[in-house]
Amino acid sequence: MAIPALQIKDVSKDFGRIIALRGINLSVDPGEFVSILGRNGAGKTTLLNIISGVSQPSEGSVELFGSDPSDRQNKAKLAVISHEMFLYDNLTAMENLEYYSRIYNVPDSAVRVEQVLRDIELTHRRFDLVSTYSRGMTQRLTIARALLHEPALLLLDEPFTGLDQHAIGMLINLLRKQREKGRTILLTTHDLHTAKELSDRFIILEKHRIVKDGMMADTDPDKIRNEFFSASTAGVEV
């Protein structure tokens, strides 16, 4: 059997007295696209932080490709897209991408930088400071930055929240391409229909636990909504 891209065993996480995650078990195969659904405060972001190694679980263990998330070769395979931009406003798009391609030791970096700039349609603005960009442009650059080193595992934390339509369309296309290339993708979202469109599999986090783990193909998003995000438990847009 192949080594799973991600293997989580009995993970719990507390912040002092606040419970964030309880008894999480999850195995994701290479090439799978998994959507993580759940209300605000369910623990989605915490789970992604533990997977990326920036946060340590209080209990349990996490392995990426058979080894610790903090191993350097794992970090080189990983990309995170969240509400944080990971960009320097006072550098141009080009300078930001060149900086990160050096950090990630991207082979043929000049070619690769050009390619991602083309993917996000920012080539014509590549020599302008990020501080002069519109929000949508900055968001596109954030996506390009994350994909620069061809990550094998992508973690996206509500990547569509706050994006404009143009950026949403672009991100969906890029994610489809990533999936065709066999990348493993985990994505948290409120948007059940986009989740259905993109992913093979979904899990639902509720009250810090995984309450459902199923395949998207056999699932009707409206049914999930009624079952897990019904109107009586308001506060979530789905």
């Binding site: 190694g53 920036v54 350097r72 944080e84 931009m85 990971f86 960009l87 320097y88 950090i103 030791n105």
Partner: peptide, 18 residues
């Protein structure tokens, strides 16, 4: 302050370097 502004400190924690 530069590293804090757009979450760049977190980006540093994610870097594949010591």
């Amino acid at each position: 302050a530069l590293e804090k502004e757009n979450g760049n400190l977190r980006a540093m924690a994610l870097m594949p370097v010591d």
